[in-house]
Design a protein around this nucleic acid. Structure first.
Lengths: 230, 230
DNA sequence: TTTTTCTATTTACATAATGTTTACAAAAAA
DNA sequence: TTTTTTGTAAACATTATGTAAATAGAAAAA
């Protein structure tokens, strides 16, 4: 359900690259590393990058140039890396369109926090503006606030059940196989028993069944499940 | 329809004052100049100042003292001026609450850039200068006076807890992750343990839970916390 | 129809994931 | 100094999740 962000790391110092890579991968991010600015631009153009960490001082094309280049073509978030004492203007940096900057030497904690903060501010903007809410008659499934409201009162429901319900409800009347649900709700890299879906469906039903004539969680024999709306 | 920011310059060296004044006025800022710390405090108290540039070494009251005095009463941005080689601890400086510091001798470009950067970071917050008060039924969280009033009587609560409560209460029913709360309540440059949030939530709950049916601090499993209002 | 086979539902349980509380140390304020 | 606030780590508690097995139900075959 949640894609792992891929982060481009560009620094001519291989040790720094390695350090940053380790910190980020420990947090579950995917990383791509390169040692000069020219290569960084190539990788960026190939696509698939969610955030770039650019050293200011790099051979072939410095961080400022790379950042400017990226900004010409995209709003992808950028964090600049700068050595302490290096002549560098942080204002220039932010004016360039960089989203944040980190001064070397830095702590892992700080790096990770800044990366996460920038991603939170930039990535979710698409999803934050389109609130993840789906409603029918007297039911509202709100994935933004993790809320399930039926007949005006909010109900307690565990996250996975809510996600599953939201997924089904946001594609009303469409049947999904257990495998599809596992892939779409649990994630492409989830390797588990498809009976798991059944159990979750049951648990959701306990909470919502009989509360409306207009909608229901229906079993489609030998196929899967659907959220049926009349 | 943007008001021109007024900047207070305090330095015992009249030449420096003049230099700073010229740089800033060239950029369209309004300025007020004074030569010692005591006068700086007076001018600050008279109001109308948007940012102060304070030399650390000044007669009557040094920059550190002035900054501390200002911080007692307001969040007005402050930039410290320090001579190269002067014994000075930039950490102390920022801990004081200063927003930035500039080492003499400086270039006009740098000065202007830093002033603009600080204003950009701080002014927009000030524009939300409507009183920071939020109320529901029998609870009033007042961040302006650091007051928490429930059922008409004011309760003792430490500042951080109040800030957290205020933040949550001012976005009712919205879930925040621990990371978001750390960033928004503690500040973007805080890199502490996210369990810290839990502990603060617990401490707030000890003080406010059970005092109303209409609102509560709710845990949203695997997500974070929210201030729920019915 | 009856039987068989396949599929879904339910239950119970183990384990994993997450939240809460406590205790204490460090930092800040009084 | 003493007190209060704040942050951290660890023990503890709770909730969620996934799996397996037992049970029930529907469709297909005899």
């Amino acid at each position: 359900m949640k894609k792992v962000p891929t982060i481009l790391i560009a620094d001519d110092d291989a040790n720094i690259c390695e350090l940053v890579r380790l910190y980020l991968e420990k947090e579950g991010f995917q990383t791509v590393v390169c040692l000069d600015g020219k290569r960084a631009i190539e990788i960026f153009r190939e696509g698939g990058i969610d955030l770039a960490i650019l050293d200011i001082m790099m051979p072939k094309a410095d961080g400022v140039t790379v950042c400017r280049e990226i900004r010409k073509e995209s709003k992808m978030p950028v964090i600049m890396l700068t050595a302490k004492g290096e002549t560098f203007d942080k204002v220039l940096c932010l004016d360039l369109g960089a989203d944040d900057y980190i001064v070397k030497p830095f702590e892992g904690k700080e790096l990770v926090a800044r990366v996460k903060a920038v991603l939170r501010r930039t990535l979710p903007e698409d999803t934050e503006n389109t609130e993840k809410i789906v409603s029918y008659e007297n039911i509202t499934v709100n994935l933004t606030n993790y809320e399930l409201i039926i007949n005006g009162s909010s109900m307690d429901i565990p996250p996975k059940e809510l996600e599953l319900l939201y997924y089904l409800a946001s594609h009303p009347n469409r049947v999904f196989t257990r495998e599809q649900l596992l892939e779409d709700v649990w994630g492409f890299d989830y390797y588990g028993d498809s009976r798991t879906v059944d159990v979750h469906i049951k648990r959701i039903r306990e909470k919502i069944e009989g509360l409306s004539e207009k909608w229901t969680l229906k079993t489609v024999w030998s196929v899967g499940y659907k959220f049926e709306v009349k």
